[in-house]
Design a protein around this nucleic acid. Sequence first.
RNA 1: GCGAGAGUGGCGGAACGGCAGACGCGCCAGCCUUAGGAGCUGGUUCCCGCAAGGGAAUGGGGGUUCAAGUCCCUCCUCUCGCACCA
Length: 837
Amino acid sequence: MAKYDHTQIETKWQAAWLTQQSAVVTEQADRDKKYYCLVMFPYPSGRIHMGHVRNYTIGDVIARYQRLRGRSVLHPMGWDAFGMPAENAAIEQGVHPASWTMHNISYMKQQLQRLGLSYDWKREITTCRPDYYQWTQWFFLKMYERDLAYRKRSAVNWCPKCQTVLANEQVIDGACWRCDTAIIQKELEQWFLRITAYAEELLAGCDRLTGWPERVLTMQRNWIGKSEGAEVTFPLQGRDDTITIFTTRPDTLWGATFMSLAPEHPLVERLTTGSPQAAEVRAFVERTSRLEKAARTAEEFEKEGVFTGAYAINPLTNRPIPIWVANFVLMEYGTGAVMAVPAHDQRDFEFAKKYRLPITVVVQNPDRTLTAETMTEAYVDEAGWMADSGAQTGLSQPDGKRAIIDHLVAHNLGARSVHYRLRDWGISRQRYWGTPIPMLYCDRCGVVPVPVEQLPVVLPRDVPFTGKGGSPLRESQTFLETNCPRCGGTARRETDTMDTFIDSSWYFLRYTSPRETDRPFRPEAADYWMPVDQYIGGIEHAVLHLLYSRFFTKVVRDLGLTTADEPFTNLLTQGMVIKDGAKMSKSKGNVVDPNQIIERYGADTARLFSLFAAPPEKDLEWDDHAVEGASRFLNRVWRLICDGADRVRAARRLPPFDPQHSSPRAQALLRALHQTIHKVTTDLDQDFQFNTAIAALMEFYNLLSQWETEGHAAATSTDGEAGEAAAHAAALNTLVLLLAPFAPHLAEELWRQLGHPASVFGERWPEAEPRWLKDELITIVLQINGKLRSQLQVPPELDEAEIQSRAMADPKLQPWIEGKTIRKRIYVPGRLLNLVV
RNA sequence: GCGAGAGUGGCGGAACGGCAGACGCGCCAGCCUUAGGAGCUGGUUCCCGCAAGGGAAUGGGGGUUCAAGUCCCUCCUCUCGCACCA
């Protein structure tokens, strides 16, 4: 028998599949059969790593399985090709980002092909090519037209020594990663996308994404962070000015006894100018601005503040309340001003205790009457009745909330209001290797969009990469200087490029018709393929990429280009590949090179291991030995099939045989076979439990090889022979078919050896026949007081009374029931009998 | 800190609230072989016991239930995200 030569087999079939274009798809008349399987495209960092192997194998198993189910499967691949590493390579190695990126792409593409991934390479897209990014620019212009793109001042990390902007990743403990200089915050005019305009729809949509993991939806909901409440306007005492606050607890407004402002709040300066407190407040603001925001809001963090000397008027009590500046109030949330209700907010309570500010109870605990003097913590539950609240006194808390808002609205003191935690998306990057923002600045006309006909705004090649200075594009005179399309005068181009998250926010639409030259995609193609039926990618994208893609899809829909509301119907978030307890990384020296695994064991083994070692959503611990286990299994299957191939081919010449009349041995094999089909199918359909699907195949292999050994020992039985030959042939054929999505090369090769002239991937997935799924005997577990004491093997149709009487006669049970009264019997049909004595 | 998850043998992991540890790795014993990074057979949670058998055990503690890895409360540890890494 020939040895399992994985290299020869894999090379042969990869070439054949490529020639046959077996993964190339087009739109069919019958849209019901479409299936769009998408795995997050990679950043071309250099070479693929084990995380990619795992990722793309999962996608490939799903794609191949769906094809076997008769679906027309779109399974494309491309490159998220803009990004910082290319620019860093340019700075450090002097290689142009474009050549660095394109070189990586060609290497990684070849690596992916060696894994036997069934991509429709005719649809390959690369986001750094002008034929792609011109449409990224086009979307930006459409958003600008619709007021979804706008400019505002916003802070960036700035290294004063390198004179450059740093990404958060490039800031290590508050210092520049290149020169270790302490960074500062610098305000720049930057472009933003108005994702908040879709906050409500993005939130509501979460309820309909039933194919997404609940935890991802929870993170998205929390990220959007809707809170309902009211805006309330407080007049300032002795000034013709007001402060507006947002609160989710308008029911506690009667208890607002002071006010807290964020140190950054613009009123702070105005309120204190010329007052005796000015110096103290300024020092406090200065001190707080150096602290990290995360730390400032921490629960254990020491709450500190200073009095501004000014007072506001509580619009319900009409009493003056002092205005403080507090370190735990952030300008980003709400309005940057908070009404402080110490009786019913823990932070306010601690603050009030520390600075001896008044506390008024306005929501009474129905279980235990609260008094301001004896409280040791705030009463924050929203389940009480209103106290000391003027006209609202005595109302239930929800009624009180409604009544107070009505009062505010009626007296023009405030309004019902909704706030979101979600902020608009800052997309300006002061970097070269990204999509240029297609805008111009004209001295006469101001901010002018580049006309659509002039797209793409192409990245110039002649740019020096120094890692210093601002946007590198500023250095290119040919790029910078242009004419204003409105007045014809001189204008300069925007030199910032876009956040690369934009490139990946619409690529799934481009795949549906990737060679369109006069529009981003063909709407009919998008309507045919979209939404993506199964999206696969890392859990680390739970919020940003997945939220941005949803946002883009809704914008594209509102532009009338697609009818899809949501981009991804089902989402599978898979875990990382780790080794020795840590994420594989060059710096830790724990990387495993996929090339070496493929050379030594073959792509099928690499695929099988990465599917078998852990369920897809969990982290996968790399284990060299376990890889050998996967390899061993494939070798065993190889030998078993090669061994039996002659008999399988011969069995095809036998007359048709009714398995119902075959020997018990043959029937036992068929029963195991159909149970395996059932297990593998449900594992693939329901939860992508590839690990247990493969375990089922291993179990079936074990049983089958045992079956054959016993067959040899019993020589050949007379009347069972034809039935056993048929059962054996069915077992081998089906085993290869079930293995095909996981180990496609091996399965294809073995399929031919079993005498089939055409590809295994032209077959239909087998169906488990219900009549073979029932066992001849089932096990009933016998428990005494919930503890396992014995078991019964019984035919499945046996009734409860018979099982009871057999149980009572069971000798193993006697010591436990002798001389005891049976107080209760719990019978779970087909499973167990529990006697409580 | 905020938000979201996870914790089961020596290891990766299985287990509709109903037999804890499927399957695989590793290890042990045996067979085969001139040899083995090959193949085959059997064993392998821990403790007591020659055995039959019994007891304990799913991060710690508590609870619900005839029955808890699974549900509830609480604590601990680890992982991911936090808006300029992609």
